[in-house]
Design a binder for these strands. Structure first.
Lengths: 206, 206
DNA sequence: CCACCAATCAGTCAAAAGGTTGATTGACGT
DNA sequence: ACGTCAATCAACCTTTTGACTGATTGGTGG
């Protein structure tokens, strides 16, 4: 029996996942959490095989941090990130944080259950659309931004200043600037707006 | 008994909604659909009180069209749009198509059930965050940019500096800045990147 | 162990961007 | 004829951004 913990701030999604997974004989949803921190605490105290983790919690992407903390536990459960959209920066950040995989919420129940079983065995499981993009990405090592650089760039695209980005990511402006300088170099531009335009045209950011 | 039809391409979301709504004594989920067209056909043949309609179906926003066709039926059911993100243009389009309301998927079950009952009575129901933004919006009557302002903004979105924009449009930087200051005021932002983000989110620029 | 690199931050400097005020011109409608 | 407004520009000033230099930490791979 694979012991599964759900972590998602949408009550509807939690109920849906639980309903879908309860149909599987070998999967058991032992607990559900709406707050990432509580899930981390639970995993520290109980034996859990797989955590289904949402990335966005009311706008904030605290799922990444929670994933990192879960993977830092002794005998950590596998973390399977489950989100609505496949933003590239989020995928890389999640994998970097130790996630075993990354699935989209529009996966059908069978694929979801299969993904959980794969993750429980320690295999890496990625949604097909994500796997395809990762492959294309690795073939182009030159323009590849680091996870952090992409994260910063995405916030620039949302119109945030360096100061605001620093606050959002708990960084100094110096570090934000540093990341942006590297981004500019890799993309061959010399301003934030040009970087956003370039990244958008190549599909790096939506 | 309020007869409810679910229409969402996410199996998980459908299951979650059904599970949540089944707990309400006065609500009955009579059918679920993954495809908008099938839901329209069902509503044409059966008595339905409220349709919970997702907007995005695998990237496409066919929910708007389905809402319009449902509302064009004789004795049409109320349509309650249920989506993940509150994109302003989607809200306006949904209301224009005849939707009775617009809720976010992170609504808690009680609010969801209440919204369905309100919609069944023919009342307009909006998620609080959406209502708030609509009010702010109507208080700011001057969101329309002049042709020249739009032209400048489009070049900003392409990553050009004020100097480059001036050269392109045969203007001095002073004039470019002047246009941008007006754009910032109308959009309620204070930087070029934020202006681009805002204009993009409302569909002013591609 | 060492090289390399991502990520973090500091300090300094020059350039770009943004805020404010004020002015001129030419349409457009009443 | 008059007011209104888009469009144009100038001058001044503050804030933000970007360029450069350099340093530390932690992890990965040979």
């Amino acid at each position: 029996m694979i012991r599964v913990v759900l972590c998602d701030d949408h009550p509807v999604v939690r109920a849906g996942l639980a309903a879908v997974l309860d149909l599987e004989d070998d999967l058991e949803v032992v607990r559900q959490f709406a707050v990432a921190n509580e899930a981390v605490a639970f995993c520290a105290a109980q034996a859990v095989d797989v955590v289904l983790m949402d990335l966005q919690f009311g706008g904030r992407v605290e799922g990444i941090g929670a994933t990192r903390r879960i993977r830092a536990l002794p005998r950590p459960p596998q973390v399977l990130v489950l989100t609505t959209y496949d933003v590239e920066s989020d995928v890389l950040a999640a994998v970097d944080a130790g996630a075993a995989g990354y699935l989209l919420k529009d996966a059908d129940p069978a694929a979801l259950a299969a993904g959980i079983r794969d993750a429980a065995r320690g295999e890496t499981v990625l949604a097909p659309s994500i796997a395809q993009r990762l492959v294309r990405r690795t073939l182009r090592p030159d323009t590849s931004l680091s996870p952090r650089e992409l994260e910063v760039l995405a916030l620039v695209a949302d119109g945030l200043s360096n100061q605001q980005i620093g606050e959002r990511l708990f960084l100094s402006q110096a570090t934000v600037k540093s990341h942006l300088v590297h981004v500019f170099g890799k993309l061959g531009v010399d301003s934030r707006t040009a970087a956003v335009a370039a990244a958008r045209s190549t599909g790096m950011i939506r």
